[in-house]
Design a binder for these strands. Structure first.
Lengths: 225, 225
DNA sequence: ATGGAAACATACTACCGAGTATGCTGTCAA
DNA sequence: TTGACAGCATACTCGGTAGTATGTTTCCAT
């Protein structure tokens, strides 16, 4: 076996563990999930997991970091778009809502991570990882804040106090993470229809006269597909 | 000591334990919270808690039930009001958002309870308690659904698919539970200002042309205070 | 006053789960 | 071929935790 092939096998193993861990953490939360549970989910034993991750906390952090990457990826297209501000924002919400459904397990882990802010960070290294993660969260929020501010200055959005509106808005985009459940029959179109509904609610929340018709809207936004 | 005085002492003890448990469960979640931790929070030992609650799960259920009661109480005034539909709904959101901040610990426990739906119910009795709780959740959601439907029929609200809009709307009202943190300087007026901001966002999300001015709005709604 | 029960604290058991130490097997490099 | 290391599985340690059993004290009813 060539060296590069070994690397990819190793990368695959990491991915397998990451996905299994994400599902377990999502279903039961960090504290209630044992390493053995994750291992059983993989059809393996603890040995395998501890061969790739030094501790349970590191495994969790890896899942959380991945979730963060996915979240950034989800809003990237909208954020970087040069279209009008309200369209950009709509694309961001749409991408994020879709991400919440498509990567549901990973995203739910982000919630769990929030709670750890207070009590969990024992070692210095862990504290650093937590600090880094909080920075990423801030950066993520800042992207929304920037676009919201821009739209506000342009007279497009009704925003009272930015901090409250921002949080309400982002929570709306996140909302599928709380109630979405995978069904056998959901295809991409179905998820997009749900996402469009969320976009409409969130955009109207800012006082934008978002069109009622889902198809009109998705044709307008889905220019790149 | 009279018999009735003993009852009230016992009720006080129950309340103490309930509040301490709520805080602990909120900070660390159910699984990560030990009975000893709750006891230490009370300046007592396990004996005290197990004297009043047969198991950790029963304690958690008690906290969750209380949280449910508080949630119902929070939206009751708005729901039972005879004012126009959009005002009723605004009052409901306002009450709920306030409740999420005022009873923050209890409310956060409701979130944790959601996750247990899947894995946690071991005994038959526990299964019943969970089923009862899910009924209550449905009943709670149904109250919002009813008012939303009424407003939709009256042509007041823009609602695409009810299930999605309903969830987005309720999540918006719940949103302070995710980010609110008690400060030393928050008085009732401050919380109400936050709540008003959330109400504005949520109502606009339904396409209602909710007024910008917070004071105007709160004078309009806060008729009973 | 005194038996007894309520209201706990203390001491103990039994188990589970994170982390470790060690053993086993295939694979590659020299 | 061989040794050495990756890639695990197995077997163990040990601290923490739910629940129990057993004191101990206070307080009330009789």
């Amino acid at each position: 076996m060539s060296s590069s092939a070994r690397v990819s096998v190793k990368a695959n193993r990491l991915e397998e563990i990451l996905f299994a861990a994400a599902e377990c953490f999502q279903q039961q939360g960090f504290a209630a999930t044992s390493i053995d549970t994750v291992a059983r989910h993989l059809g393996a034993t603890k040995g395998r997991i501890y061969h790739y991750f030094p501790s349970k906390m590191d495994l969790f952090n890896a899942v959380r970091d991945r979730a963060m990457e996915l979240a950034f990826e989800a809003i990237k297209e909208g954020y970087e778009s040069t279209r009008p501000t309200e369209v950009r924002l709509g694309m961001m919400v749409r991408g994020q809502a879709l991400g919440m459904m498509q990567y549901h397990s990973f995203m739910q882990v982000l919630l769990d991570g929030l709670r750890m802010r207070r009590y969990g960070a024992t070692t210095e290294f862990q504290r650093q990882a937590m600090a880094l993660h909080l920075e990423q969260r801030d950066a993520f929020e800042a992207m929304y804040r920037e676009v919201l501010s821009k739209g506000h200055e342009e007279g497009l959005f009704k925003i009272g106090r930015m901090s409250i509106t921002l949080r309400s808005f982002v929570i709306s985009a996140n909302s599928p993470v709380f109630w979405y459940q995978k069904r056998d029959d959901d295809d991409q179109a179905k998820l997009e229809a749900i996402a469009d509904e969320i976009v409409a609610f969130a955009m109207r929340g800012l006082g934008v006269d978002w069109p009622d018709d889902e198809f009109l809207h998705s044709n307008q936004v889905r220019q790149t597909t």
